[in-house]
């Protein structure tokens, strides 16, 4: 019974937190398509790409995929590796700038 209450409480906390944060941040979200023409962002992304991606696996060649493909894959890795959003967007901008498009 105690565990059930804890589970329900945690569920409520997760859902409540998500809703609260989403409503608070959606309007001002900076989760927008990276401006790949920004050389500063691309440079930051190149550095972060070498630092973050190699923590678990070999770094993948940016030319392996198209820019649109990297956009999805970089979000996948952002979630899996808990990469801060701003850093993930820098990496995405770099990968798209050097993609096979």
């Amino acid at each position: 019974m105690k565990m059930r209450m804890i589970g329900l409480a945690v569920s409520a906390l997760i859902l409540g937190g998500a809703v609260a944060f989403s409503s608070a941040t959606l309007a001002q979200s900076d989760d927008q398509t990276p401006q790949s023409s920004d050389p500063m962002q691309i440079a930051r992304g190149a550095k972060a790409w070498s630092e973050y991606c190699g923590r678990c696996h070999n770094i993948r060649d940016p030319s392996e995929r198209s820019g649109r493909s990297w956009s999805v894959v970089s979000k996948h890795m952002r979630v899996r590796a808990n990469i801060p959003g701003a850093t993930a967007k820098d990496i995405e901008a770099f990968l798209k700038s050097s993609s096979n498009d």
């Binding site: 050389p39 691309i42 440079a43 190149a46 550095k47 790409w49 070498s50 630092e51 190699g54 070999n58 770094i59 060649d61 940016p62 030319s63 700038s97 050097s98 993609s99 096979n100």
Partner: peptide, 28 residues
């Protein structure tokens, strides 16, 4: 930065993804 980067271009750094770190440092 506008030129696509290929890891093979940096094989002189040891044919390794670790060469990417040096590449990023060069760029910055």
């Amino acid at each position: 930065i506008a030129t696509p980067v290929k890891l093979e271009d940096h094989s002189e750094r040891g044919v390794t993804m670790k060469g990417a770190s040096a590449l990023a440092s060069d760029l910055l």
